[in-house]
Simulated assay, not measured.
Amino acid sequence: MTCVLAIDIGGTKLAAALVDEAGSVLCSATRPTPRTDVMSALAALIAEVTEGGPPPLAAGIGCAGPLDLATGAVSPVNMPSWRGFPLREEVQKLTGLPTVLAGDAQCFALGEHWLGAGRGSESLLGIVVSTGIGGGLVIDGAPLLGPTGNAGHVGHMSIDPYGERCECGGRGCVERYSSGPNMVRWALANGWTPAAVGTNAAIDRSNETVVAATGGPSAPSGVQADGRALARDAAAGDPVALAAFERGARALAGMIASVAAAAEVTTVVVGGGVSAAGEVLFEPLERALDDVAGLPFVRAVEVKQSTLGVRASLAGAAKLAWQAHPPNV
């Protein structure tokens, strides 16, 4: 049986799998991302996945960025121990396999195009809405990576040149309005008080936000101010929570309309922790997109929720490897 090794590297979790040509996972494993010596943890994970399995033909890696495709180096914002780290070279030395690299959001888009909600789309934009906002483009079945590998950075498209200053240094970036932490920050600043209730599964725990750590307004003692609480309160009709999602959805709609106008994408797949809020996000997004989109081909874009969830980036890493190193070639 032929397979490839797929690797997904993020700030909280490392994942690896052996994946066949049809996208079936033969074996997989995950473990937390350590603060230091990430490569040792990754080596142990790869050994766990490959032991006893069929020998993979190649390895594909999806990693948080930014990255540099020319050198195969990565500098993930949420992994301070890796700055200019030669990831592609290190994995190739470790495994002895031809190795390809792309951003994790680019792999998310490719995975959804291959096996998920974007299957069959001629031109797709994948968006990961979570602690930050990432994106990737798949055009005619191939990922659009760009000269340095950072194409699809839609979270830092400016939708308001007079808007708020973003953490990246830019102004009016989508991420400043639509990411989980920034929606929570805005809601607290505008009078939202999270309801003191038990746990709720509206949004993945990966989207937790302790706003006090950013220097912004904070929730009452003992009450969790995070994206799950914001989604829960919005679903219950809290006006400020609803306004936060409306504001975030409108920024996303502006970005989607702009990308559709520039690249004529026909499908947009939205994933990440915030997307788990469901209709609380997607209903205002649909309304906002209907309002801001003008040209017929822009208005025709179809927005879907991810069907692969956390598996999308790993699937995309596998597809990346299959595309670069097809069997019997």
Rank of each mutant, 00 (worst) to 15 (best):
D160W: 00
S221R: 10
A263R: 14
A6K: 00
A212H: 10
I203E: 01
T193F: 08
A43H: 06
Q224C: 11
I127H: 01
L57A: 11
A234R: 01
L320V: 15
A212G: 09
L18V: 07
G215L: 10
T33M: 12
P86R: 07
R228H: 12
G227V: 09
T2Q: 14
T95Q: 10
D20K: 10
G132P: 07
V138M: 11
S178A: 13
A189M: 09
A109P: 01
V268R: 03
A277W: 02
G23D: 09
S179Y: 00
L188N: 09
R35K: 06
R287G: 08
L125S: 00
A260D: 02
G84S: 10
A73Q: 13
L281D: 00
C168V: 02
G316F: 00
A243Y: 11
E246I: 04
G10C: 05
F245A: 01
A151R: 04
E286Q: 11
L289S: 10
A219W: 00
G134D: 04
A288Q: 15
L26Q: 11
G146C: 07
V268E: 03
G53Y: 08
W192C: 13
P217K: 07
G227P: 08
F85V: 06
G116I: 03
M255H: 05
R165A: 15
R311P: 00
H153S: 08
F245K: 02
W186K: 03
A202T: 15
Y162L: 14
A261I: 05
A260G: 06
A251G: 06
A47G: 15
P32A: 15
G53V: 11
N200W: 14
C168E: 03
P327D: 12
A70M: 11
C168D: 03
D37I: 08
D68Y: 01
S40P: 05
G216C: 04
A312N: 02
L188Q: 14
A288F: 07
